[in-house]
Simulated scan of single mutants.
Amino acid sequence: MSAVRWGVLTTARIAQDRFLPAMHKARNATASAISSPNGRAAEVAARFGIPAAYSSHEELLADPAIEAVYLPFPNGLHAEWIIAAAEAGKDILCEKPLVGSLEDYARVVEACQRNGVSLMEAFMYRFHPQHQKVREFIDAGRIGQLVSMHARFHFVMDRSPGEVRLQTGLEGGAVNDVGCYAVDIMNMVMGRSPASVYAKGTSPIDPVETTVAAILDYDGVIGTLDCGFEGPRTNTFQIIGTKGHITLDNAFDPIPGDPARVTVSLRDGSTEVFDVIEDPFRLEIERFSVWARSAGQEVVHQELTEQNLAVRLAIHESLAAGLPRNVEPVHAVEHHLLQEQ
């Protein structure tokens, strides 16, 4: 099978630092075009050996050679460009979080269904083999019945002028930028969203929350998350069971070439350590390229996407109210919204 021809909309830092280097290693994908209205597309194209550079995203979407696109826009622009890409008939890998509202979710799903294209929220960490190993340990009963889960994702943000992650109008804030990973991994482990959440946040100098902690109640299993832009870099995850616990030292953003360590500690005092090296961006690109060439269309990992949106909405409601909030399933609301259109 020939390589899937990808277009990259924008010269965003994540595209240059992680996505395009991973694309060079992918076995079934190639970067064929990049676009940016800021005049940098040609420079980035030359650096990565990309054949076509466009000065507008509309030009790239009109290129009939492009099969799939990667959208690393600021969060608040995701829905607009997902719909534009769907109308152009491109399969879409959009950076997390997919959208920030039920209305936008209904709109993008309808556009993708109507145009017969696939859509996936780009949580690249899901494809790292360390998480498959964790699933195997849990399913095999190695740590017994699950008791609690604890996810942390922090880094110190460079507050340069125009930083999009600090803008309310672009759906910035710690929950949407890093807390969404913590939500996603706990939903993935449990296979469902929590029944309720209770969140507290701070934003000393910014209009969005910059540090957040939350309790997620999975009806018998408690999850906690803390995330933000103020503290030293950490992205860890721990699952505690009745017979032991599993710890991931680099759960969400392992650097290619660096080991992601999985430690299993059991109640009898024994410990097993596994170092797993892989580039999750490469694996994500390869998997989505297979979906792009499939006969059908789908929202890939739709259940996880809907669960993540439902929990983030509840967390933001809890932050605003200072009270616990129930998590309402997204799919029922989304279907209702689609019927009204």
Rank of each mutant, 00 (worst) to 15 (best):
E306C: 01
W81Y: 08
I240P: 00
A62E: 02
G100Y: 05
G296D: 15
S118K: 11
Q113I: 13
V183D: 08
L60N: 04
D253N: 06
S36C: 12
A251H: 07
G162K: 02
F155M: 13
P74M: 09
L146R: 09
V147Q: 11
P21A: 03
K25P: 07
F73V: 14
L146C: 08
R5K: 13
A260P: 13
L323C: 13
D139K: 11
Y198N: 15
I255V: 09
F153I: 12
D268T: 08
T11I: 09
Q307K: 03
L216H: 04
T247H: 14
R325H: 15
Q132N: 11
E80H: 15
D226K: 06
F274Y: 02
A195P: 04
K96H: 01
Q130F: 00
P207T: 14
R165L: 00
N176T: 12
I50Q: 02
G7D: 00
F252T: 07
Q339H: 15
M157T: 06
V327L: 03
N250C: 11
D253C: 06
A332L: 13
R40V: 05
A53P: 03
V311T: 08
M190R: 12
A310T: 04
V134T: 13
V290A: 04
T236L: 02
E67L: 08
D268A: 00
A140I: 12
V183E: 05
Q238R: 03
T30V: 14
H331W: 03
P329E: 01
K133C: 11
T242H: 01
S196A: 06
G100I: 04
V264I: 04
Q16F: 09
R107Q: 06
A85W: 01
G244V: 10
D206W: 06
P259K: 07
N326K: 13
Q307G: 08
H336C: 12
E110L: 15
D253P: 00
S270T: 14
P194H: 00
A84F: 05
Q145F: 12
F288Q: 05
N187P: 10
I215M: 05
V197E: 12
P256E: 04
S36K: 01
A86L: 06
P329M: 08
Q297L: 10
M120L: 15
S270K: 09
P207H: 11
G322L: 09
G269P: 03
G116P: 03
F123M: 09
G228L: 01
F229I: 04
N250V: 04
D177E: 13
Y198H: 13
K200T: 14
A174K: 00
M149H: 06
I246Q: 01
L77P: 01
I315L: 15
P21D: 05
E303R: 00
Q16I: 11
V175D: 04
R293Q: 15
H336F: 07
S55M: 02
